[in-house]
Design a protein around this nucleic acid. Structure first.
Lengths: 201, 201
DNA sequence: GTCTATACGAAGATAGAC
DNA sequence: GTCTATCTTCGTATAGAC
């Protein structure tokens, strides 16, 4: 039962992070929602609130990382589809209360806080995974790097808009446009081809 | 001096929102940073902290809205450039502490809070402005709508990544990819052309 | 218009009993 | 492992003097 309590608390922390940002995680709310006994807090998490926050961010990051790793059928467009599907489900299942816990932590913490550095690591992990997938599909390194950033940024931005306006439309729009972009890029930016001409911007 | 104090307080509120989210705005910090006298709080803002939050979000939204309205040279790519330039400057000038106040407010507030609804309105305004610009450039309505969402989402996502990793690289990458996408779209999705084939996703 | 003082509540953390 | 105080700090808001 010990493990279960611990896990329930971290899962609840992720929920709160999704809904209200880092400051939404108060120990009171955490205990009430998770049903965990109050006395368990500092037993399971000697580092107190800080440790819980950190583990919640890590779990949030791992969820997406696993998602990317698991759908290893090679095709980047199929991968995008499963990521979009995951978020569509998360958003609707929660009644559009749940955003991305990693982004929440990044935004609602001081710029130099450990939590922001943690979020940075997670973004880098996701990006690395995507780059690997895109280059495996034949894209040159430069384009793959830019597209990986683009995918993460666009989807995260769309999630924010979806939660804000309680609709999956932004995600649908963004997923569609990313698909167009990926298709175009995969036609013209193969490994052997020269990198795209890029403007100053 | 009254107006100045008031304005300074709202500007400081925007700063705090950018740096730490809604919960970063405490009246103590606000007064200390802005240099405003403590007694001015409820004099200038009878609605208290809530009112200050609201005005800060509004000001943040207006800043971008004016930016879009002011650079009315017609060309969507030029418009994107000025938006990207604005954020590049904001990020670097602040030492990568400042994100978008509207996004901050949206994320660090309860999903059903007035602040989130306010953020939604602002997103809608931006989107409307962009759509107008894209259709004026000849794009059909469907594509313009999707692209407008895409631009806002991708740039907002990029800003988050930039602030998190203290680099403008994500913004540069995203701006470049958006340019590619806009160019491709403007070639194939003019008003008279049929809407793009879109998949289930 | 602005100041100080204070009421009131919420939150994190610790101590010691069970 | 868990519970119940309790300490301390912090934050909003109000009251009343200047």
């Amino acid at each position: 039962m010990a493990r279960d309590t611990r896990k329930a608390m971290v899962l609840t922390a992720v929920e709160l992070l999704r809904e209200r940002g880092a400051d939404g995680i108060t120990l009171d709310t955490l205990v009430n929602r998770s049903g965990a006994p109050r006395g368990s807090i500092y037993h399971h998490f000697p580092g107190g609130r800080t440790q819980i926050l950190d583990e919640a961010v890590q779990l949030g990051g791992d969820t997406i990382a696993s998602l990317i790793a698991d759908s290893a059928d090679g095709d980047p467009i199929a991968l995008l589809d499963s990521i979009a599907a995951f978020w569509r489900k998360t958003l609707t299942d929660s009644g559009f209360t749940a955003g991305c816990p990693v982004v929440s932590a990044a935004i609602s913490s001081a710029p130099d806080s450990p939590l922001v550095r943690h979020a940075q690591q997670i973004f880098a992990t996701w990006r690395g995974q995507l780059i690997e997938r895109l280059t495996a599909d034949g894209l040159n390194a430069t384009t793959a790097g830019r597209l990986a950033t683009m995918c993460i940024a666009a989807i995260q931005g769309a999630i924010i808009m979806c939660r804000t306006e309680a609709s999956v439309q932004p995600l649908d729009d963004v997923a569609g446009e990313l698909q167009v972009l990926l298709s175009a890029r995969s036609l013209f930016c193969q490994t052997d081809a020269p990198a795209d001409r890029r403007g100053t911007t």
